[in-house]
């Protein structure tokens, strides 16, 4: 079972909000429009992605207009 995470390159992110629409259970927005995870995740990830949301997260990665998102997988420890 692999754990999936969503990483955002903050130097690219412009807060367009597509990822927030696609992953409403994981992300909200701050007052400037940038994605704000509902639960903060330590390390380099914006948020962890539960198995049920992986397809939506892949969609978010594909559609991000700034190409700022990356999905990461690591073996669960």
């Amino acid at each position: 079972m692999n754990r999936t995470g969503l990483h955002v390159d903050w130097t690219r992110c412009d807060g367009r909000g597509l990822c927030v629409e696609l992953l409403p259970d994981l992300l909200g927005r701050d007052e400037w429009g940038y994605p704000l995870p509902h639960r903060s995740t330590p390390g380099r990830l914006l948020t962890e992605v539960p198995p049920g949301s992986v397809a939506d997260a892949e969609q978010a990665v594909a559609l991000c207009p700034l190409l700022a998102l990356t999905l990461t997988t690591e073996a669960a420890t």
Binding site: D14, R16, G17, E21, L22, G33, Q59, P65
Partner: peptide, 18 residues
């Protein structure tokens, strides 16, 4: 419209992109 980051009524941002 996509670049503005605004949705339309009934059409979310990712749909506009698509």
């Amino acid at each position: 419209l996509n670049r503005s980051g605004r949705p339309l009524p009934g059409l979310p941002r990712f749909s506009i992109a698509l």
